[in-house]
Nucleic acid binder design. Structure first.
Lengths: 194, 194
DNA sequence: ACCGGCGGTAGACAGCGTCTACGCCCGCCT
DNA sequence: AGGCGGGCGTAGACGCTGTCTACCGCCGGT
């Protein structure tokens, strides 16, 4: 078996990741990926029964990448839970802004149907990471940690989404997403210590 | 002229709205819309130069619908700003859950490029409505109203998005979005009065 | 030495968005 | 009154897409 030296399956996913990062979501067609991987348009079918299955695999790579980046910045951040949360949040927002096509792909709900790959599962490590940090940073009287983390995560995600959509600056007059990030953290965790 | 008894333009948009509500985003193809409107596949081009232009028009209708629903529930809600905010938020979440395809369409960022229709503009009335309510409900010491409103809106939007995505219940154990809604409102506006 | 099957090719098919050429029919102008 | 122009919709073509199916070469086991 040896998974082959070539590893067409991995090459397809890699080509897809490259494409969605470089050209955006609309460029990730099955045939274009096959072209970039140097195989015929029918070849992917051997590994991915359908187009969405391939897209799911690409999205999984996206979650892995994002999780790795977050872990990286957390490694560089200090021990204070609050500053660690800020680091996590900033990485999340930066990722969404820099790799918008990938970010969109990762949260496309029609990819969830292809249950085999279990896209949601891939996203969980990142979010349990958030839950743990919230559990440390939350104030004693606040809501239970999971709820708090869920609400904060939603807030974070919404900022990323709406900021990319471009209506937040129009409606609020705010010109950088950091202001919104601080506001969100202050709201959910109480005002910043200093 | 009389704008024709038919009003093909409006019929196309109506057919598109119907389609996206009934079958979801993937069903809203230009040719299918034309079919449902009883015209040939080339007919829409007379009114919408490209497919995205038609989709933008459909999304605009979505914002109009959502805004109308919000105004409706606000009319029935009491005078207390906080309860009015709860009503607005619930309507927002219910809309996102009930008309998921339309909700997705409304926030597709590739529709923004077709500048003529100015999709963002259509969404502003709804959000200024939110800003006004926040300005009334916010506590004196809190962040400036536009920032607060922006953060709250993002929170609301994120809950809608992630809830539909289905990962929030998994990660947080929360089984209804109302819990998250209350948490968000409490966080941004201070704990509920009662 | 043969033979089975894995892994990839190649062609067909329907559907899509876009473009272009064409015709109908109504209202205006002389 | 008659002809003409142009708005409005039709119809066909093109290249692209995802999916299906038939094929085929090559490598390993017996």
């Amino acid at each position: 078996m040896h998974e082959g030296e070539a590893g067409l399956r991995a090459r397809l996913v890699a080509a897809g990741v490259d494409l969605v990062l470089r050209e955006g979501q609309s460029a990730v067609s099955l045939r274009e990926i096959a072209r970039r991987a140097g195989v015929s348009h029918g070849a992917p079918r051997r590994y991915f029964p359908t187009h969405v299955d391939l897209l799911s695999a690409i999205a999984r790579e996206g979650f892995a990448d994002l999780t790795a980046r977050v872990e990286e910045t957390l490694r560089a951040a200090g021990p204070d839970p609050r500053t660690r949360l800020v680091a996590l949040a900033r990485t999340y927002l930066d990722f969404a802004a820099a790799h918008h096509g990938m970010f969109e792909l990762m949260f496309r709900h029609d990819l969830l149907a292809s249950g085999r790959l279990r896209l949601r599962e891939t996203s969980l490590p990142l979010f349990t990471l958030l839950v743990d940090l919230v559990a440390q940073a939350r104030q004693p009287a606040a809501a239970p940690a999971p709820v708090l983390a869920g609400a904060l995560w939603a807030n974070l995600h919404g900022i990323a989404q709406l900021w990319a959509w471009g209506s937040l600056p129009l409606a609020t007059g705010v010109t950088d997403d950091d202001t919104l990030l601080r506001a969100a953290l202050d709201a959910h965790l109480g005002p910043a210590p200093h």
